[in-house]
Design a protein around this nucleic acid. Structure first.
Lengths: 147, 147
DNA sequence: AATATAAGTTAGTTGAGACTATATTTTGAT
DNA sequence: ATCAAAATATAGTCTCAACTAACTTATATT
């Protein structure tokens, strides 16, 4: 029923977090080290090793002991999808003056649970609000009143 | 930093799901049976018993063997908050023609991860879109194009 | 080239939260 | 009041994903 548009066999939620970090690290630094993944996710190094082995078994990454990790095609596809969602959400919430840092936990939660139609709705709304500063201002005022 | 407005010690995500179901059942039928909670959450009865005992230990529900479950004050506060979020999200996504059933999984995911400012933003946007059918139509067209 | 330090791995444990199979208790019908 | 059926509880197991402690490999400095 709620089959994703991309019919990828998505990993677990935690695995998606790992994939996102790994892709980001590879794009920023050229490689993804266990220690950096652990640091970025706020968990212990040993936990990362364990998960990477599971993800290798699941075909999401290619892993060789003491050498680096790289994404498989399947893993990269999922990673890019998550990053795309993350960025859409940051862009959306930034409209309301919420900075990326203060909404990090929210986005973390939401990005794993957003179906394609909902993502499309968010993106469409982002576009409209960017084009209508007056509307955006009204919304922001209401938010200020609530908080 | 991301302290909730309601400074409640929220339960785990799973516990929030239970609380939501329990509150809904109590309001609809006057009581919450284990068998109904299990059915609504799509899990086994025995799993519910186990969780309810944990939640009793955590002070979220009051539980007596073979008698019913009721919410404590703390539990009810959390339950009402989750229900409120759930309803706000349904209202929002319904704007775009997405029915409650088809977005159930999304909302399930999101409702546990939404901070107060983001909830306020969603609610404010819902209000604006209800008042601007033309804008809503444009957004809906874009969504149709994406899917 | 030797060795200190950083990075990575292994082993063993924990807790959440689900499961099945098996009791036990409550309830409703006779 | 009895007894079958429905509801609930217990016991024991499983997986995921984290942890610490201890060990191994890689690297960098001299």
């Amino acid at each position: 029923m709620s089959k994703a548009i991309t019919p990828t066999l998505r990993g677990t939620r935690a695995q998606e977090d790992y994939l996102e970090q790994i892709l980001t690290l590879i794009e920023n630094k050229g490689y993804a080290r266990v220690v950096d993944i652990a640091h970025n996710l706020g968990i212990a190094q040993a936990s990362v090793t364990g998960m990477i082995q599971r993800m290798d078994a699941d075909g999401l990454v290619a892993y060789e002991k003491y050498r680096g990790v790289i994404l498989t095609e399947a893993g990269e596809e999922i990673a890019r999808e998550i990053v795309r969602r993350h960025e859409s959400l940051v862009e959306f919430f930034a409209l309301f003056g919420l900075d990326e840092h203060s909404i990090y936990d929210d986005i973390e939660g939401i990005e794993h649970h957003m179906s394609q139609p909902i993502l499309a709705a968010i993106q469409a709304l982002t576009g409209e609000l960017e084009r209508q500063p007056a509307l955006l201002e009204r919304v922001k005022k209401k938010i200020a009143g609530c908080a």
